[in-house]
Design a protein around this nucleic acid. Structure first.
Lengths: 382, 382
DNA sequence: TTTGTTCGTACGCTTTACTAACAAACATGC
DNA sequence: GCATGTTTGTTAGTAAAGCGTACGAACAAA
């Protein structure tokens, strides 16, 4: 484990804004064109020029470059009854590339998929981990990724991994207790194994990116993931928040409320996880005597989530809170109680239009977030 | 008041990253040079080239431009016993410009100052508001700013205003109940009155910028301002956080704990302000029977602050929490209790090196933050 | 057929930062 | 004292990026 001092200096090195060369501007504008095509679908060069503010000449130049790289294709003429020369429609080469996305956050299984440029799952693949840890489980991941890569016969844009635990910006898992990982340089390992670009992030951060890219969330929001533990991914102003030690969103072991609570594995009482984790909820529901008791249990969990969220939403003035996890547990009384509690504890004036809801992305949220990481990292598309 | 829909679209317009031209890169590099000179003090062109990674040629060109603009001056040769041609030392023209900073957050008085480029107060000026509201109090501010501008006989870089309430990015105070302001376009009003660049921000945000620029805080941190109310300014990754409705940091009316609490002016029970605002604390201390009771009161307030902060610090993985306000109330038992409470309620593993402390900037924090806004907005220096 | 419109491209220009080369000014070693 | 090496800052020329202008191509409408 690197000394804290080393981590700090690594962070410092990140801060001082570096020089900007014309070629960086070029890369930015290139991504801008891709972003517009990605979002807007079929557009002509002239459309792109109007949209981006760049001239038609510059757009033509950029598009030529993108076509040469195989990222953009011409898809025929627009057949409208408009005067003037008909436009040549462009689109991202959506069937020309694939993305590999992997979700390591499930208990006992690594779930991977081949996705298309739009983030839709093409094929899936799983590999059981059987409680393996450390190097052993790393080998299982390498195997899963190798199999996925081998199953695709068109170019792969990159590989995205959503891992539990703390992940730094260089793609090293600093700590993931459930997998027995400490300072595992996943990015380097997988790039060496596949010779493809690899991006690694925390699973909750990946989920937040998925909501941003493929879901309905936008602006400033937060995704709460409820599973074995509780974690959050934050996006502010369209950018992910990582935190000073890459541990942003680690909410599971924050104590909630001022009235005690169950003992947590971490030694404290009343951590958010003691109320809200899937194992605790399912155990509680199984022990409950009747429907009313089950309802009360879920409502209590939702209230605790609301209590924990209130200061965060207040401090950040969030637009939206999205909850991700088992629908049968979270949707219904739990989410409803969270909304009510939350509204009762914050200033409605500042967030009258705050929405709290379940994610629509279901089980694939982390894999699709991993794909979004690749799109963002490789194409500048988000 | 603009419709919520208008606000939303204003935000959206901000999001889509715009085109980047070479001239923008130039401006960035120009700021980079200024930033280095501002921080590092006396440096030669060759030093700047080594530091920024730009060539000596480019640096010479940029420096020539900055000297022509009067922002940089040559301050003589370096007299070291080194071989080679002696270096010509450069520095920001620290005595060539002044900044006006104004703090509107005090009760009953607007406090302004002329500051130098280093954020040191040169002269001060105050104007009582005598409980005035709306247009009347706006006129008082214009008067104060005009007087300050008239009192300076060297060029003024700009005017910074730290205002209570909600302030948008265009310098309009959307809402400031204490001053009776709703949608007051301060930036426009003051620019028209003085013909100088004006920057307006929330007082807590300004305080956070002051800590970033002139204090010891860096990286990801939060400044809690305790005064008539309670507010926070957040800086993540070196950038201020504004929130989706520019209301980030409005923590005063978040309910803390799960055990009731006093009735707040907002109608809820147990808001952070009911425990922590200066009026409440002084009233409580006056009513306390002995030293132990006073100590307990302050400790309770600190505990509540810790309870409210725990989820925020956990979610954002902050480096540092800085408290700003009356030292005699906040320093001591209150801060100590906040630290202890906070540590007891969060995961030490992720923030073993979190520091919670009083600000060293004292009463001038908002005015100096306002100056920092000008430095950042006009020179790109932060 | 003529006119007007829209699209995409060719050409030349400006801005920006780079590389290469050089003169100035100093310390050091003989 | 004088050649040598070092460091600094500048000059000259080059490559990249985007702009403005102008132009041909392709279409609709009169």
């Amino acid at each position: 484990m690197p000394a804290p001092e080393a981590q700090r200096s690594a962070l410092r090195a990140l801060r001082p804004s570096a020089k900007v060369l014309p070629e960086h501007a070029r890369r930015h504008n290139r991504s801008l064109v891709l972003q517009n095509l990605y979002r807007g679908g079929l557009q002509s060069r002239a459309d792109l020029a109007r949209e981006t503010g760049l001239t038609r000449v510059t757009i033509s130049d950029l598009v030529a470059e993108l076509i040469a790289d195989g990222l953009v294709v011409e898809t025929g003429q627009r057949d409208e009854g408009r005067p003037g020369k008909p436009a040549i429609l462009l689109d991202i080469n959506r069937e020309g590339y694939r993305i590999i996305g992997v979700d390591l956050s499930d208990a006992g299984v690594f779930r991977g998929a081949v996705l298309d440029i739009d983030g839709q799952v093409v094929t899936r693949s799983e590999l059981a981990t059987d409680g393996a840890e450390g190097a052993e489980v790393t080998a299982i991941l390498v195997q899963l990724v190798r199999d996925l890569v081998a199953s695709v016969d068109i170019p792969i844009l990159g590989i995205g991994i959503g891992s539990p635990g703390i992940v730094d910006l260089a793609g090293t898992v600093l700590s993931a207790p459930n997998l027995g990982w400490t300072d595992v340089a996943l990015q380097g390992i997988l790039e060496a194994a596949t010779d493809l670009p690899v991006l690694v992030a925390n699973d909750a951060n990946a989920a937040a990116l998925a909501e941003h890219s493929f879901g309905d969330a936008m602006g400033d929001f937060m995704v709460i993931r409820v599973g074995r533990g509780v974690g959050a991914g934050l996006i502010l102003g369209g950018r992910p928040v990582y935190g000073s030690r890459f541990a942003a969103g680690e909410l599971g072991h924050v104590v909630v409320g001022t009235d005690g609570g169950d003992l947590c594995v971490c030694g404290k009482h009343g951590c958010l996880e003691t109320w809200l984790s899937v194992p605790r909820l399912t155990a509680g529901l199984a022990a409950a005597s009747d429907a009313d008791a089950r309802d009360a249990l879920l409502r209590t969990a939702g209230e605790r989530l609301g209590i924990a969220l209130a200061p965060v939403v207040g401090a950040l003035n969030l637009d939206e809170v999205v909850i991700s996890g088992p629908v049968e547990l979270l949707d219904g009384p739990l989410t409803q109680a969270a909304i009510e509690t939350f509204r009762a504890r914050t200033m409605a004036e500042f967030h009258g239009d705050l929405t709290v809801r379940m994610s629509h992305l279901g089980q694939d949220i982390v894999m699709r977030g991993a794909a979004a990481m690749v799109l963002s990292g490789r194409l500048g598309v988000s």
